[in-house]
Structures are given as C-alpha cells and as structure tokens.
C-alpha cells in the first residue's frame, strides 16, 4: 500500500539511515565525485521517476486507486511567470499522511517529486518545479494507506523578454 516498501528498498532505506547516523562513513561508502551515472541514491524510486504517464507513476509508487478529495489543497499559479520555476504547495488536514507526490503529466517524465513524511512531519510541502508546457498538476496524498488527490491547472507560456 505504501511508498517504497518492497523488501529490497527497505534494506537500502535502512542502509541510508545507518549512513545518516554516521555520516563519517559517507566519504568511504559513496561513489566518488565525478563518477558519472553511479548507482542511484538509496531509496530513490527509479521506476516511478522513469515513468512517462500518470498511471505508470501511480503503479510504480502505490497500490490502490486515487480518490479526488476536497481535503487536499494544491496551490499553483494560474499563469507561470516562468515554466522553469513554478511554485507548488500541497497541504492537507487528513490524518496519518505518509507521503505526498507531485505529478506534472505534460512533462517528459510525469513524476516531479515525491516526499516521504515521518510521524513528526506536518502534512504540507512547498517546492518549485519545471513545467514544459501548459499542464495539470496533480498532488497525491497517501494517508492511512489510502490515496487522495487534487489537481490544478498551470498555463505555461514562453517568456517574451528572456528568449
């Protein structure tokens, strides 16, 4: 039901936590700087980030169906001042939120960001995303093992002054 909980991912997650606990190890364990395309960071949901469509992203990240919900709030500008930097914020009053994902289906890869919340986290996130063209933006909130979603529309126009 939940994000990133296959056995192998759980193992890498624990590895990552151990690393975080003793960051001194990082220099030894992490691939050295300049080693291009080293293995992906522990816990990073590669299949979801390589997915082209919304459905593929959801299948890679979650089980179960999306339910559109008024309890999920997504804020985006109506017209992006620059598609390279679009402020997006998501929040909800739903209890038991374990993850928040943001999808931009018109981008080459549909998943833009996925946030894993801890018990101590409040159910909100703000970030800045790239949008290739006019698009829907979909926020998926995982709470109590269920998926709730909200969407909004962003118009992306080429700048006139920036080329």
């Amino acid at each position: 039901m939940s994000l990133h909980h296959t056995a192998s991912q759980e193992a890498t997650r624990r590895t990552a936590l151990r690393l975080l606990a003793g960051l001194g190890l990082y220099g030894i364990t992490m691939p050295s700087i300049g080693q291009a395309f080293a293995s992906d960071a522990p816990g990073w949901p590669e299949a979801a980030f390589k997915a082209k469509t919304q459905d593929e992203v959801l299948a890679a990240l979650y089980k179960g169906k999306l339910e559109m919900s008024k309890d999920v709030t997504i804020e985006t500008p109506e017209i992006a001042e620059n598609g390279a930097v679009v402020p997006v914020s998501v929040s909800t009053k739903l209890p038991g939120v374990t993850s928040i994902s943001i999808l931009v289906p018109e981008n080459p890869y549909a998943l833009a960001a996925s946030y894993k919340l801890a018990d101590a986290s409040m159910a909100m996130v703000g970030c800045r995303l790239k949008m290739a063209k006019t698009t829907k933006v979909i926020a998926v909130v995982e709470a109590g093992g269920k998926l709730y979603a909200a969407s909004s529309d962003v118009k992306v126009t080429l700048g006139g002054c920036g080329g």
């Binding site: 017209i79 001042e81 992306v156 126009t157 080429l158 700048g159 006139g160 002054c161």
Partner: peptide, 8 residues
C-alpha cells in the same frame, strides 16, 4: 502589458 508570458 504582456509580452507573451512576461509582464513589461
């Protein structure tokens, strides 16, 4: 005014 997506 707008110049495409920008405001002058």
């Amino acid at each position: 005014e707008r110049l495409r997506g920008d405001i002058l």
